[in-house]
Simulated assay, not measured.
Amino acid sequence: MAHLCGLCLALRGDHGQFARVVTNYDGLLISVLTEAQAERTTGWRRTAGPCPLRGMRTASVAQGEGARLAAAVSLVLASAKVRDHVVDGDGLLARKPVALAARRVAASWGKAGARTGSDVGFDTAVLIDAVDRQVGIETLAGLGTPLLTVTEPTETATAAAFAHTAVLAGRPGNAEPLAEAGRLFGRLAHLLDAVEDRETDAASGAWNPLTATGTSSAEARRLADDALQGIRLALREVVWGSGVSSGKHSADSKLVHVLLAHELRRSVDRAFGTSGCGHAPEGSLGPDASFGPPPQHGAPQNPYVGGGNPFGGGPSFQPPTPGKRGFWAGCAAAIGLCCTCKVCCADEYEGPWSRRKREGCLSNCDCDCNCCEACECCECCECCSCCDCGL
């Protein structure tokens, strides 16, 4: 929450209140990684005043270049997403006056992101280039096109953002392994989004990378598992704050461990409908060695999303799935969720765009791993030797 609020306040501080609507959980990873690598000094956190999104409570929030880099990335990618919706004519954006206003907002966000990126030494052109190339690649892709050709622009963009956190934290030696971790994180995000949207895309006639390239679910799962393993191996090479590396936990790296080792595996299992133990043994990253159901932490564009049957009706029970909201309707729903604190505090709420069921980000952890009696899996204690993530 400190990083989420820090991203939100960085957006407000540099770009005004309206920019806060692009706050997202993928973006806060940039802030998390930056702080986890830095030497523990003062200045990384501050006490923020009361906010209606926190029930008018104060909070310790992240600040500094990590939060500003996260803000820059979020703005540029949100700008690209709005432009994409305009091109597709989604919902109200099919109307010319609304589309014109949306284009102006997208252009404003793109310029704002570029300015903030420049302030922290990050060239957002790599993100814009990736978005532009994505459109061309999807236009040309067809049956037989390798799926990794389609995911490449996303991989390139996330690799650049992850790698720059090493520069901000004063750990240039971490840039290479973090670029690899970011590349694979981008691949995984793209894959999970495609898997989760495959049925709805087929029903609506929307473009889906798995359908377009003829990629089977089994092959998508193999690529996802390879990405998970690659992220874990790459993170083993990262030196965290206070010089901690080689599988030892620092206080700040525990959150990295939870997000990029535990939650990613759970997200894969949720997307592919599998479950199992919370720690996959080395070399066993298939469906039989997977994580159980995660708490939901996602925004519509990130991998921490879920589905399933919240009513427990069994395989034969299929509650109707409501249709997705358009961009502006989703924005209105998102503002309502934030103002009522449901995103933070509700046991369950409906995603503003996808309308999938999600759990509040402050709901209790439901990790039920039993790999070893001494291991408190949710706390990632150092006595745990059954996790192979290397953090």
Rank of each mutant, 00 (worst) to 15 (best):
L69Q: 03
I30Q: 01
P52A: 03
R103S: 05
E237L: 13
R232P: 07
P146K: 06
D132H: 13
E180R: 15
L69S: 01
L148R: 05
C341Y: 14
A78K: 00
V195R: 14
L4G: 06
V167M: 10
D368R: 10
V82F: 00
A130R: 03
T124V: 15
T151R: 02
V258L: 15
R115I: 06
G312F: 12
L143W: 07
L337D: 01
R187K: 14
R232D: 11
A71T: 04
H164F: 08
H297Q: 11
S284G: 09
G292P: 13
E237P: 02
A157R: 01
G247I: 12
R12D: 08
A102W: 00
N302P: 08
A70M: 06
I335N: 05
P97Q: 12
A251C: 07
A107C: 03
T58R: 04
A114F: 04
R45S: 05
A334V: 01
S108I: 03
L228F: 07
G55S: 09
A112C: 06
R187T: 04
C277H: 05
G91L: 02
E348W: 12
N364K: 13
D132Y: 07
L184Q: 13
V32R: 00
G6M: 12
V167W: 07
P310F: 08
V86F: 00
F122E: 01
C341Q: 14
H3T: 02
P50H: 08
A101E: 10
A175C: 09
L77N: 05
A271D: 04
C380H: 15
R355D: 04
G360A: 07
P146Y: 13
R236K: 15
C345N: 11
C8L: 10
T213K: 05
L255G: 03
W328M: 14
L210S: 02
G49V: 07
C51F: 02
G326R: 00
A166E: 02
L235Q: 05
P97C: 06
D347F: 06
S118N: 13
L4P: 03
Q37R: 10
T42D: 09
H262L: 12
A189C: 09
I30G: 01
S246Y: 12
G243V: 05
P319V: 14
R325Y: 03
